[in-house]
Design a protein around this nucleic acid. Sequence first.
DNA 1: CGCCTGGTTGACTATGTTCAACCCTCGTGG
DNA 2: CCACGAGGGTTGAACATAGTCAACCAGGCG
Lengths: 244, 244
Amino acid sequence: MSIDCKHCPLRRRDAFADLGEEELAFLRRFKMGELSIEAGAPIILEGANSPHFHTVLNGVGLRSKSLIDGRTQVVNVVFPGDLVGLQANLFGEMKHSVYAVTSMRLCVFSRDRMWELYRDHPARAFDVTWLAAREARSLAEYLLSLGQRTARERTAALLLIIDRRSRQTGFAPATGSVPFPFRQQDMADAMGLSLVHTNKMLQALRQDGLIKLADGKLEIPDADALAEEALAFDLEDEGPRALM
Amino acid sequence: MSIDCKHCPLRRRDAFADLGEEELAFLRRFKMGELSIEAGAPIILEGANSPHFHTVLNGVGLRSKSLIDGRTQVVNVVFPGDLVGLQANLFGEMKHSVYAVTSMRLCVFSRDRMWELYRDHPARAFDVTWLAAREARSLAEYLLSLGQRTARERTAALLLIIDRRSRQTGFAPATGSVPFPFRQQDMADAMGLSLVHTNKMLQALRQDGLIKLADGKLEIPDADALAEEALAFDLEDEGPRALM
DNA sequence: CGCCTGGTTGACTATGTTCAACCCTCGTGG
DNA sequence: CCACGAGGGTTGAACATAGTCAACCAGGCG
C-alpha cells in the first residue's frame, strides 16, 4: 500500500506547506487500502451508506441517477483523481450510483477519520473542498448542455470534455487518440438523448470530419472546429488535485 | 454588523466544538460587512474575479450560465444560507452569474482569509465543504430533471423544490403559500424549456388542481400528488448550514 | 395616453423519440 | 466446428413532444 500514489488528493500541497513526516504518518492511517473493481461493476449504489469513501487511482467510471421508472441519467464521468462517495460521508447517504466502465483501482479512506483530516491537516481539507467545488462547477457546465444545447452541440461538447479530461488525468496520453470505453447508450444517458438519435449525431459529426470514433478510440482532428460546434469557449479546466 | 446572523455558515457547529470567544473574534475579522442588492441586479457576473465571497442572509436569486449566442440556463436557485462566489475563491474566476430576484442581503467575506479559516477553524472549513457538496448534489438532481423528465414532470419537480427550499431556509413560512417572485421566463431557463411551453405546462398543472400560482404566490394543495407527477421520491434535503 | 413587461393562447413546424429492422462480433455449448 | 444468442452499433419511417411565430390581454408607470 503506497501513500504517494499519483492522483490522490492528499498528495497535493499548493495552498499550504509541504508534506511532512507527521502528515505522511496521518495519511498512512487515513488510507485504509485499495480497491480493485472490474469493468462494468458498481462501486457505489444509490442509497448506500458505506463507512468508506474513495479516490480514483486509475480507470474511468460513470456517476448516474435514476427515476423510479428506470430512466437513468449519467451525471458525470469519473476520472482518476476524482472523489467517490464524499456525499455519503457528509449526508449519510449516496444520492447517485457509480459504475466502473473500465476496470478501476481506488484508494479507500476511512469516513470516521474525516474530522481528523479537517482538524489536523487543513491543506488536505482544502483539497477536499476544492474537489467538491470542481464537481459542482462541472455539473453546472453539463446543465448548460442539457438545457440549452441542441443534440449535435451536446454531442460535440461531451466528446470534447471526455477528450480533455482523459488527457489531463493521464487516462489518455497527451497526444494521439483517446481510449473510449463508453457505449453509445452511456453517451445517450449522459446527454439526455435517445440511443438512436445519439448514434445519428455521431454519424453526422463523423461525416463532417469532426471526429473519428471507432474501435474504442476517439480522435478529434481539429479541437477548435469541434468546440465551435459545441458553442464552447471555456473548456479549459484544471487537472486533478486529489487526495493521495 | 452582526456576527450571529441566521443562515450564515460560520454559525453552525454540528461537527465540532461550539463557538468560543476566540472563534467569534475570528469571525468578526473574517466577515467584512454586508451587501444589499436590489431586485433584478447582478451579484456576480460570469468571468468575474472578486476579492470577496458571500453568504446569503435573505432574499432569493438565480445562478445562471450562458452560451455565446445568448441562450442562458438557470443552474440553480439561490436561497438564504447559500454560498455565492466560492468558485472565484478556489479557481480564480466565476463560471456563472448570480442575479438577485428579490432584493437580497449578503454577508461579505474576505477571500484572502480563507486559508486562515481552514487553518484555525476546521469546523467552519468543514461547513464550507458541506455547502459545496450540497450544491453538487442538488445540481445532480437538476441534471436528472433536464435529461430525463418530461416538460410536465420538470415543472412539477421545480415547483416542489422551490416550495421545499423556500420553507427550509425561512424564505417562506412553514405553512401557507410561498412567495414566488420568479418570472415564467426564469422557470423556462431553469427547465431548458421555451417560455410558451412552460406556460402551457403551468396551465395544465393548474387545471389539474395540482398547483395554485398567481399574484406572486405559490400554493401546493397536495405535495404528494405533485411529487407523483414529478416522479420524485427523494425530495427531502437538509436545510442550510451556513457560514455565520 | 401609450408603452413596456409579463402572462396567455392557437397554429404551424421541427427536433428528437419510438419502433422495427438488420449488421457484426464474440463467447458458449451442442 | 458450427449454431445460437447476446451485446453493441446502424439505419429508415412514423410519430410526438416541445419550439417558433404571432397575436392579444392586463397591469404599472412615465
